[in-house]
Design a protein around this nucleic acid. Structure first.
Lengths: 145, 145
DNA sequence: AAATAATATATGTATATACATATATCGATT
DNA sequence: AATCGATATATGTATATACATATATTATTT
């Protein structure tokens, strides 16, 4: 007897999210190509820019990314000179991450490229549906936390 | 002058999808833990089960995954004895992938674990909203292809 | 103040992913 | 049949990701 309905798992939230994420990442990366950034680094650099002097752990909390992954991904940004990583004088365990001028330039350069990709998605879905979509992503995130 | 509205990129479809995907993957993985499969392998094994004698490239097309990634991920399944990979007699370039009895058992074992994770998402969102969500993921996928 | 618990980051290891390119095979053209 | 283009898979390399654990530092407890 092995008549379990495997086919039902086609509706898997995780599998469907992973597939769409693979696909959309390549899409955004095509636009970002000229900047030399790719989606994950663009996102990381953006959040560093929006949260000056943020720590590794706090970045992880915002991005829902393991702290060890943050540690490794900011190394790449540092290697390219886009961020500085310094010990917090008030707490030597902590490191504070800041965007450099070069990093801010790179981010500014990639914004219009990002905007091109983004507008295709938003226009394709329509404003309202896009808003609902972001809300659903947020709700899923809270369901699984 | 650097007053570009970086903050607008918080609505990035790619970034938001990637974040939610990281998060939900860990959620499903917790449930699947007992089976020894993790989300990507569960998904891969499922699709192999649903498409007997599928090729590497066809799997990539279904999963929107690069062919080289499929090649490497099925190696893991093969190493665990969950699939067989044999040359297509009709076309020696092609390889056909099939689930083994052991793989089918493993999949059957993981289905109720998957169902637990899945039902929390579907119940949390509600049936209708969940259906809309899958539709939107599909539409995004088509927008970026 | 010393010992212990808690916290922040880093390292070792493994999987997931894709791009550029190589290799093998097939199909079509001559 | 030999050549050439197309197709299927594999390999080299690099980034993305997380878990288990180590290390360093701070905070708490005795």
């Amino acid at each position: 007897m092995s008549c379990s309905d495997l086919s039902g798992a086609r509706r898997c939230a995780c599998g469907n999210l992973r597939r769409t994420t693979r696909s959309i990442t390549q899409f955004y990366d095509q636009f970002l190509l000229k900047s030399g950034l790719r989606s994950p680094q663009f996102s990381l650099l953006l959040n560093i820019s929006l949260n000056e002097n943020i720590s590794v752990g706090e970045l992880g909390s915002i991005l829902l990314m393991d702290q060890t992954t943050v540690t490794r991904n900011i190394e790449m940004l540092k290697k390219n000179g886009y961020v500085t990583i310094i010990k917090d004088p008030a707490d030597a365990r902590r490191k504070t991450i800041s965007i450099t001028e070069s990093g801010a330039d790179k981010l500014a350069e990639s914004m219009p490229l990002w905007e091109q990709a983004q507008s295709q998605i938003e226009k394709g879905l329509g404003t309202e549906r896009y808003r609902d979509f972001l809300k659903t992503l947020k709700d899923i995130t809270q369901l699984v936390q």
